[in-house]
Design a protein around this nucleic acid. Structure first.
Lengths: 165, 165
DNA sequence: TCCAATACGTTATAGTATAACAAATAGTGT
DNA sequence: ACACTATTTGTTATACTATAACGTATTGGA
C-alpha cells in the first residue's frame, strides 16, 4: 500500500521518503507495463523532481545533477523531461516553467494544481466537477477536442495556519 | 453600443476594426476613471495586442513596433505590458508566454481561455460554474486566498467546421 | 551478428524576462 | 511661472528557458 498525495497537500510531517520510493515504484511498473525504457538518466531526473513537492525547473535539475557529479547539457535533461511527461510521470506547471511529480500515473489525466505562493508546494487535485464545468463551457462555445490546464495560486493550509492559527 | 466578444470566439467575418476601437475606448474610460496614465506608448502596445484575437509575445510586439519605426528595448514593452496587466486591459496566456486583449475590463476577473491550437485565436469565457467548482476544490484542500488560471487548448468552431462541415 | 531504432552527448543558438541605473516627462503645490 | 517630486521611459547588460542540428553510443530484435 502506498500513501498517494492526491486531493490535497502533503501533511507537514509526512514521511517524504515514502513519497519518493512509491513514486519510483509506480514509474517502474508503468514503464515496464508499456515497454517504455526508464533509463538511469530518466530515473535520476524523476528522483530529483520527487525530492520535494515543489516544482523544479529544467536548469534547477541541471544544477542538481551537476552537484552530484553528473555534468549534463540542457538537451539531455529536456529529453528526460519529455519522456517523463509523455508517460505521465510528471506534470508541467505552465506558469512556473517547472515540473512536479505525478502521484497518479496509471491513467492520463488533466488535473488541477494548487500552488502555494508562500512555500511553493504544489498539490494535485482531480475535481470531477471542474472538468464537467469546463466541458460545458467549451461545448457552449463550440470548442472541440480540448484539454484543459488549471493552475490555482494561493496559500496552502500549512502556511495559512502559520499566519493566523 | 459595442459588440464585446466574451463567451465565445469572434465570428469569422466580424468587423474587427470595431473590436479595436471599442477596446481602446474602454481602456481610455477605465484609465481615466482610476487616474491611470494611458500614455502613447502603452496605447500603442494595446493597439498592437488588439490587432487580432491571437496572443502576441513581448518580442513580437517589439518587432511590430520596430516595423512601424519605433525602436524599443525589451524593458519598455515589458513595462507597458505590466501596466496593461495591472489595469486588467490585457491577460497573459501562461502556456504561450503571450498576451491577449481583455474584452471585459470593468472589473477584475479570472476567466477561462479557449485557445485554438489550429488558428491560434483565443476566446475568453466566464463560466460561473467553473469558478464555483474550483472554489469547492480549493476549499476542500484548505487552500485560501487563491486565484485560478484556466487554459483550454482545442479547436475552435471555425477551424473544426473546416475539417468536418 | 548485423540491423534498425532508440537514447545520449555536444555545440550553438533561439526565445523570454529582468536588474540596475540614467534621462526625461508629467503632475502638484506654491 | 517655478521648483519639487513622482512617474515614465531609455539603455545596457545579463539571467533564465528551450530547442535545432548533428554525431555517437547503446539497446533490442530479426
Amino acid at each position: 500500500m502506498d500513501l498517494r498525495i492526491t486531493g490535497g497537500f502533503a501533511p507537514p510531517g509526512h514521511n517524504h521518503r515514502r513519497c519518493i520510493v512509491d513514486a519510483m515504484d509506480r514509474a517502474a511498473q508503468v514503464c515496464a507495463a508499456r515497454g517504455a525504457r526508464l533509463t538511469p538518466q530518466r530515473r535520476r531526473v524523476l528522483e530529483l523532481i520527487w525530492s520535494s513537492h515543489k516544482p523544479v525547473g529544467a536548469y534547477g535539475l541541471i544544477e542538481q545533477l551537476s552537484e552530484s557529479g553528473q555534468q549534463v547539457a540542457p538537451p539531455t535533461v529536456y529529453r528526460a523531461l519529455d519522456f517523463l511527461l509523455a508517460n505521465g510521470l510528471v506534470h508541467r506547471i505552465e506558469r512556473l516553467n517547472a515540473f512536479v511529480g505525478c502521484p497518479e500515473v496509471e491513467q492520463d489525466h488533466a488535473p488541477q494544481f494548487l500552488i502555494c505562493g508562500d512555500c511553493g508546494d504544489v498539490a494535485e487535485l482531480r475535481e470531477q466537477s471542474v472538468e464537467a464545468a469546463i466541458a460545458a463551457g467549451a461545448r457552449s462555445a463550440g470548442f472541440v477536442g480540448w484539454r484543459a490546464s488549471v493552475e490555482v495560486v494561493g496559500v496552502c493550509p500549512e502556511c495559512a495556519g502559520g499566519i493566523s492559527p
